[in-house]
């Protein structure tokens, strides 16, 4: 709806001296008494239910009668409303400087999400490379990832973990996609607080955030799933995180900055 149009409408409706409002009615009450009695009958005696059903239909019939054109409404005369006061018992003026918004241009939050997608696509490469180089085969990392939510996995032997398990593949992919998107989103939300130059973004996104994340994982995995923590090789974990972070950061830098509506007439 366009505002100009609505304002025009508001001015046009001003001369009206009455307003059409729905008329008071007893039928919804009758209908709800019907429902209540129907239920009371279940607890006590079915006679109540029979009365309830009768009332229910009486109420419904009356209600439908109200819905007929020109039956359920009445016109209420307008009385004058006093003008809005801005000086009640509390006369404290509003604080203005709180509305200032900084900075003036930022990378959009969506850039962070896109960064998460790019990082998520890049991350398996170092992980798989390490796994193959260490002789674990390509499925080992994804099985470990699935182990985050599938505690039974820790009972499996290392040899078994290197094999292909379709369920774990699906679960691992779901976890990876969700985590990439969420971390990308967090990254996007944090963006305005990061240094605004490109080097700053790369340092923050490619080194600082992955290290914080690794620290969190290192600390928590021992609690969430201790057996799993033994099998993770942390140097490679860090490498994968950094690849993710760099991918995300570069995607962000390549994104177009958007401007925030400027704060006018305020300081």
């Amino acid at each position: 709806m366009s505002e100009a149009k609505s304002e025009k409408e508001a001015t046009e409706s001003r001369p009206a001296e009455t307003i059409e409002m729905p008329r008071s009615t007893v039928w919804p009450l009758v209908l709800s008494v019907g429902i209540a009695l129907l239920m009371v009958g279940i607890a006590t005696n079915l006679v109540f239910s029979v009365v309830g059903i009768v009332l229910l239909f009486v109420g419904l019939g009356g209600w439908i009668g109200e819905l007929r054109p020109h039956h359920g409404e009445e016109r209420i005369p307008i009385v004058d409303v006093p003008p809005i006061e801005f000086a009640g018992p509390a006369k404290v003026e509003g604080v203005r400087r709180a509305r200032l918004r900084l900075p003036t241009t930022i990378h959009p939050i969506s850039a962070g999400v896109r960064g998460g997608i790019v990082g998520g696509l890049l991350m398996p490469i170092p992980a798989a490379a390490w796994s193959i180089w260490a002789g674990h085969g390509i499925w080992y990392p994804i099985n470990l990832l699935a182990g985050l939510v599938m505690p039974d996995l820790t009972d499996l032997s290392a040899a078994n973990l290197e094999q292909f398990h379709p369920t774990y593949l699906v679960i691992g992919i779901i976890i990876h996609v969700l985590m990439s998107l969420v971390i990308g989103l967090v990254y996007g939300v944090l963006l305005p607080t990061l240094p605004s130059n490109n080097v700053g973004i790369i340092i923050a996104g490619g080194i600082v955030l992955p290290m914080i994340w690794t620290g969190l994982c290192h600390g928590w995995m021992g609690i969430v799933n201790p057996l799993l923590a033994d099998r993770v090789e942390w140097p490679w974990f860090v490498v994968s995180q950094v690849v993710f972070g760099l991918g995300a950061s570069i995607t962000v830098i390549l994104s177009e900055r958007v401007s925030i509506p400027p704060a006018e007439g305020d300081a």
Binding site: E7, A87, A90
Partner: peptide, 30 residues
């Protein structure tokens, strides 16, 4: 007596009388 905006608040419920008439607003605010 409260008047229609005792707290000097900013949302529409304070733009009509206290208590409001049955139809709330004489004209629909923009």
């Amino acid at each position: 007596p409260a008047g229609n905006n005792p707290w000097n608040a900013w949302t529409l419920e304070w733009a009509t009388s206290s208590p409001p008439p049955a139809y709330n607003f004489n004209e629909v605010p923009v």
